[in-house]
Design a binder for these strands. Structure first.
Lengths: 218, 218, 218, 218
DNA sequence: GATGAATGAGACTTCATTCAT
DNA sequence: TATGAATGAAGTCTCATTCAT
């Protein structure tokens, strides 16, 4: 009858993506608790039971969103780094790719990630994601350290990683909230603060707390 | 009737503190949404209508908690820094005081702050708190910069501040989750990463993205 | 103002009874699954949250009904039996009181009990109730047995008890479904069937399966 | 197309049996309400619309199960009784066959029957089944009565039948819940309680309520 | 001032049941 | 014939919030 086909009764895979798209959008806009399954279903142009049938509970749905966006981000970062590059260069490219991705998907991964950090049900997921992020990052530090023939204590490295990741997250948040900012330039600025600090650490320049009169050294 | 006061009718200020104590405890344990006004009232040993009469809505109550804990933290930090110290020293003391405070109140400010970051109703509050934190921090950077007779663009400084604050927040979170860690030692490690980087920045050491063949500089 | 007092804001105990009354009524009429909390709340002239606040979950509510009605029944039976009566007499009075109670409360205990028997969540409760019923009954059998200087195996007694209780339950069901029937007369008829059988058993008259040619005795 | 038949397209009768098998299994395990059409269809290895096409509504499906299992039971009982036996013997054989059947199909008829008793939608079906059971049973009583040249009032007989059937149902339930029990032995025990009582009734031994001082005979 | 009693609103979730392919 | 896709309708439960005592 009509030249435009009816879009009902789509195959499962397609519908799932539509649902995830809608879910990401609504979660981003309203937050995990503020989002209602009704709105997500409406936005996906489908009835609620389908959402439950395909993607499960609200919690599971949120995790699914987090995973999909996280994978996309990871892929964007890893595909930007060739293994034959110098550690320095890989560092830079990763950061640029990461902030570039965040800037290009301002209502995607970064927002969900930020929300998930405060909610108890996602503690495990967040820990896992962070671990994966830290891995990508720490590998670079490790590489550089070993190339210089030096090493650092486990805890030492952990705190460093947390500081670097935290700094990057924070800048990513800032980027999300400043649509006018240029991701690449922001990446450059970022390199100038935290990563240069890390470089110093790697170079062996270390800072010691001053010892004052009347104050016992810890 | 009797000259000895009934201990039920406490002065308003005391009651408010009891309620805030209970609220902070419950919010920390359960999260903003997970906490119920019932549990808070119970924990404060008071009836729900009293909580509403004194501290208002759940949202207002949470903000009140955030404020009280935030003020305590701010006070702990500012009281640790004397104005006649060198910028370097003030930097170190601030960080140490901050992480010391976080470590000493593991279920207080840091937890509430972390939770509030993902929830839209608190976006304004969080922005304000961050601004206050950044102020304390940036003042130090500013001071040092000017002492060296140098200056940085507004945006440049903003990104730097976000990176530093983000790194510190992240390490604070880490500290909350690692009760066995020593705050002072952690502060030292932190200095070695991010702040040394900032020092480099202040010193004029700056990093530039490499320019490769076939790749246009941005 | 008006001479008729407003009946809102009743004390808890009163409201709980109202709710239980409504719940028993609705559960009896519609069955456990057919009943909706909405209808129960409506029928009690109260809002749903009150029902949940006072009496808990639907399942718990049903159990509460079962208990209240069960206790009433138990009390009706036990208060009809004086300890100084002969076992025979006590037997008769118990049965008469039981069927009398069932007949007088045709939408109470018996109906709930019948419903609960098929539903898995109440298996435990039903087992407990039955145990209590069997206790009241078996005590009488025990008494009589011992008075006659005889005894029976555990299993033997258990099957007998189940048969007697089942017979009584069945007759009670029949009574519920036949409003015109007279409970006392029914009790008399009942005595003539099952209890006389039990009496025979107690008297030592026992039945043996016939052994036929070509059939192995078990 | 091919001469070898596809094993997917089974004849209707076979499919229906598969479905009923699955339905009986699931209903037994989960109860009427607890069972979902999804699980039944899955268990039958068939899609839901097929179940609806073949056996109709969930309610109809349950009734179909009840019927099939009921017929099997009835057949087991009737085929165990030859018409030329004495009434006594037929009584015994029926009971033995019945409990034997129940014991051999612990997740079949008895469970469904027990469940159906509490659910209103099946009131009619249950009444009908009971009528059929009672018929088989009462026929025996009737026969014996007449052989003895005696008779009993309609109601009298009805109550007796209900008591006997209830006792048997109860023992059947007990048997279902005690897999270790031996059906035949249980049948023997059963005979010793209720049926002996019935025999007494038939023999004319009748019990009368005692008349006490100050208590009017009803 | 203080509280037990009360509720409106809405969330998530599950099913039996039916199209349209 | 057979099925994946789809949904309307309900139901249970929880919570922030406010009367009326």
């Amino acid at each position: 009858m009509s030249s435009t086909p009816t879009f009902r009764r789509l195959p499962r895979a397609v519908r799932e993506q539509q649902m995830l798209d809608a879910a990401v959008k609504v979660f981003s806009r309203r937050g995990y608790h503020g989002a209602s399954m009704d709105e997500i279903a409406d936005d996906a142009g489908i009835s609620k039971p389908m959402v439950y049938a395909y993607l499960g509970t609200k919690e599971e749905l949120f995790v699914a969103c987090l995973h999909r966006e996280g994978n996309r981000m990871t892929q964007a970062v890893t595909s930007a780094v060739a293994p034959d590059l110098s550690a320095d260069e890989r560092l830079w490219r990763s950061l640029r790719a990461f902030l570039g991705f965040v800037g290009a998907h301002r209502d995607g991964w970064a927002v969900l990630y930020r929300q998930a950090r405060g909610e108890q049900p996602f503690a495990g997921e967040i820990a896992a994601m962070r671990r994966r992020i830290v891995e990508v990052v720490t590998e670079l530090l490790d590489h550089t350290l070993r190339a210089e023939g030096r090493e650092a204590a486990e805890v030492e490295l952990e705190v460093a990683a947390y500081a670097l990741v935290g700094a990057t997250e924070s800048v990513a948040d800032w980027l999300v909230d400043h649509p006018e900012a240029d991701p690449e330039q922001t990446a450059t600025r970022m390199m100038n603060v935290a990563w240069v600090g890390a470089a110093q650490l790697l170079a062996g320049t270390s800072w010691r707390p001053p010892i004052r009169r009347g104050e016992a050294p810890s």
